[in-house]
Design a protein around this nucleic acid. Sequence first.
RNA 1: GGUAUCGUGGCCGAGUGGCUAGGCACCGGUCUGCAAAACCGGCUACAGCGGUUCGAAUCCGCUCGAUACCUCCA
Length: 488
Amino acid sequence: MENTLQIYNTISRKKEIFEPINPPFVGLYVCGPTVYGDGHLGHARPAITFDLVFRYLKHLGYKVRYVRNITDVGHLENDADEGEDKIAKKARLEQLEPMEVVQYFTDRYHKNMDQLNVNRPSIEPRASGHIIEQIEMVRKILEKGFAYESNGSIYFDVKKYNDSYQYGKLSGRVLDDLLSNTRVLEGQDEKRNSSDFALWKKAQPEHIMRWPSPWSDGFPGWHMECSAMSAKYLGEKFDIHGGGMDLLFPHHESEIAQSQVANGNEPCKYWMHNNMITINGQKMGKSLGNFITLNEFFEGKHASLEKAYSPMTIRFFILQAHYRSTLDFSNEALQAAEKGMKRLLQGVDTLKSLKSSNTSVSDIKKLTDNCYEAMNDDFNSPIVIANLFEGLRIINAVNDKKETLTAADLELLTNLFQTFILEILGLKSEVEDSNSEILDGLMQMILNQRQQAKANKDYATSDKIRDELIKLGIVVKDGKEGSSWSIE
RNA sequence: GGUAUCGUGGCCGAGUGGCUAGGCACCGGUCUGCAAAACCGGCUACAGCGGUUCGAAUCCGCUCGAUACCUCCA
């Protein structure tokens, strides 16, 4: 029974069957971070969402090229195309070279992503490394007559574009409404219309990030990098373009316009957008000042955090909600995620010691099918997790000798847990591998002593040993067949 | 104001026109020297008001409320 993958396509607002343009190859492009600050929970969401997509597509056998950019130029500090570049501003404040700031935060971002067990993309291009490509694309758009020069800067003529194409088709906007509703902003006198956007900006004298171009010393506009780099590495039309919902407009809308003009077609077949993470019902965002960085989560150092939350807890928390739903942050929800995940991961271990029988009580095949069905339904990870918990119930029941599984089913179940928990959801045990022989030996010695005490009904001693171990972070559990221990 | 999305039990979160996920918390019970873990059982909701239907949390309308985008943000 072969299921087919369905993806919710933002541009059609429907789930569509996924058919790669050039199978078995799949091109996936996702808007990455602007590296001028530490990554926060909001950065984790798209990274994990598209990591899931990446992992699952590979699992299905596709050859995926995953491109996720690093934005290190072009994002301006203020509105209206004025003001300093974000990177440059940070650099000035810190007395650092702009590229030093970029490197610093890129490294930290990578570290966070590794901690979250997010696979590295196939290619991670930087905007600053693709100025030539961007200039070339601007030139093409000028040539086609959909852009104009104004005081050394180049702007995209949205109104003209809209006469032939439809600006706003992705975000559901109508240009006339945009024109009548846009706020009057400072410094827009260079533009013909308020909805026009910069393709190339002339740099002010104090602006330190600048490159020569046919029009001025300057830097590329906000939306150019994704268009230029996706075309370079994935082709002028590729399969999936992803990003946060907040990028829908104007970023992705403008990408469509640029590609349409420069390359004669829209950049991609499927648009995927992950929803926001909220805190007290409000979006967690840099501008709102209510964001919590990933490092703060991992260390528990933030006023709103009751405790530290491990990277895997964050990952599980995010995967427990569907990517298109908002996800509300709270300590209670995070702690629930933490407990549930630990239980689930414990199941992976328990599984190793299960014994098979002649009959099976539960239908493992059905469970497996359910998981695939859920993933195929627009990457429904919460349903996958729900099914895995059913699997966990079976594992524990078999472990307690209350249910039985045949050898074949046991293998199927092992396979299911390995595949979905470790490979596709990308969860992993965070407990230190207790593979040290010395530690093992010591623990065995201690537990033997304790066993001796218990046999003598010297519970004061046995409890004392257990309490002392807990202080060291080692938990002892007494089972029917002796005691086991683990590091918390 | 415009454009979207959404409103599910103590909390988080899936979902389909009828068979009423899952996790966490809580309350009983089993097991255990005691713990812990595990297991069994309980708690059974879909903002409000109308309408369509044999039947709606699920479809339609209205009301109320929330959020996002329209300006950098994932």
